[in-house]
């Protein structure tokens, strides 16, 4: 096996397999996570995301293939892996009858962090997730968002090199989600490689450097969001135009680079061109006597990629 530290990968997965009876829950996947990046594992529920994560941590046995996490094999050296990797499970739980500090203290003892060191690390970690004021409150009074943040604090306290977050934003309100994503960015800034699994695409898109799209235990697509969009939606610059008093389809026919013009809703048009045609489009509409009310560059959305991909899958099947 190649040395991951040399290649800059913190996680290297080759041909990873998990069988439940005859079902292939994870079907021979290859995956590389680089140092300091945020990587998204996306896909519908039951696609094999959580199983993959549990195998990375050595919490479930593999049926085949190799995994290398920070130079350790989770099957043979799970303790070494778990010492260096922070894990935030889906809907993480803490001991309700204990305070936040006591919960983290227990984790610190399991990690064999010296007592004096631990207290400092606990308060610093709680500070970084803005929970310092509830450090001595019982976890039973915490909201879901606070529990997730406490989970992040645990990873910070652990000084993990890799953080694995399973559905970190599910069940959170928009504000709590925003805060949590900020904290995930904070982890990245601290040099932690972050692996996020999620089915909430628009949220994840905003933080992920690269994503892998899971489907039926296989990785269907992998790359940056733009790469995936080009692959699934086709290359091109989509632009949204809203204008009044002009036949847009007719007016834009002659603009160089425009490939398709499709009406979307009342007075709105979706234009796909092979280059950035916004200036030319604006000029043409105005010169044709139209009132231009909106001209927007459409970022490819992961949601669109996802929906389109699974639609096509269904057509094929």
């Amino acid at each position: 096996m190649s040395d991951p530290s040399a290649s800059g990968n913190v996680i290297e997965v080759r041909g990873l397999l998990k069988l439940y009876g005859a079902t292939r829950a994870v079907d021979a996947i290859d995956l590389d996570i680089r140092r300091g990046e945020i990587f998204g594992l996306l896909g519908p529920n039951g696609a094999g995301k959580t199983t993959t994560i549990l195998m990375l941590l050595g919490l479930t046995e593999t049926s085949g293939g190799t995994v290398d996490v920070l130079g350790f094999d989770p099957v043979r050296q799970p303790l070494e892996v778990k010492r260096r990797v922070g894990y935030l499970p889906d809907a993480v739980g803490f001991y309700d009858h204990l305070t936040a500090r006591e919960n983290l203290r227990y984790t610190a003892r399991l990690l064999a962090i010296p007592r004096r060191d631990a207290e400092k690390r606990i308060s610093d970690a709680m500070e970084s997730v803005q929970l310092a004021d509830v450090l001595d409150k019982r976890v039973s009074t915490f909201s879901r968002g606070m529990r997730q943040r406490l989970g992040i604090a645990e990873i910070v306290m652990k000084k993990a090199e890799v953080a694995i977050l399973d559905e970190p934003t599910s069940g959170l309100d928009p504000h709590a989600t925003f805060e949590l994503l900020e904290m995930i960015r904070g982890l990245k800034k601290a040099g932690v490689a972050v692996l996020i699994s999620s089915h909430l695409l628009d949220r994840v898109q905003s933080v992920c450097d690269r994503v892998a799209l899971f489907n039926k235990g296989k990785i269907a697509l992998m790359g940056t969001v733009v790469e995936l969009a080009n692959k699934v939606l086709g290359a091109g610059h989509p632009v949204l135009v809203e204008a009044q008093g002009v036949d847009i389809a007719g007016a834009l026919r002659g603009v160089e680079g425009v490939q398709t013009v499709v009406a979307v809703g009342e007075g709105g048009w979706r234009i796909v061109a092979d280059r950035d045609v916004r200036a030319a489009v604006a000029q043409r509409i105005v010169s044709s006597g139209g009132a231009l009310t909106r001209l927007a560059d459409l970022q490819p959305s992961l949601e669109e990629v996802y929906t389109r991909y699974f639609q096509e899958e269904r057509h094929v099947a």
């Binding site: 549990l54 941590l57 919490l59 799970p78 303790l79 070494e80 778990k82 010492r83 990797v85 922070g86 894990y87 935030l88 499970p89 809907a91 993480v92 739980g93 803490f94 001991y95 309700d96 984790t107 399991l110 990690l111 064999a112 989970g151 645990e154």
Partner: peptide
């Protein structure tokens, strides 16, 4: 049931 098991087992402990 309190979902603490996977979190505890993700610490260095068998």
């Amino acid at each position: 049931n309190h979902r603490t098991l996977s979190r505890v087992l993700s610490q260095p402990i068998y």
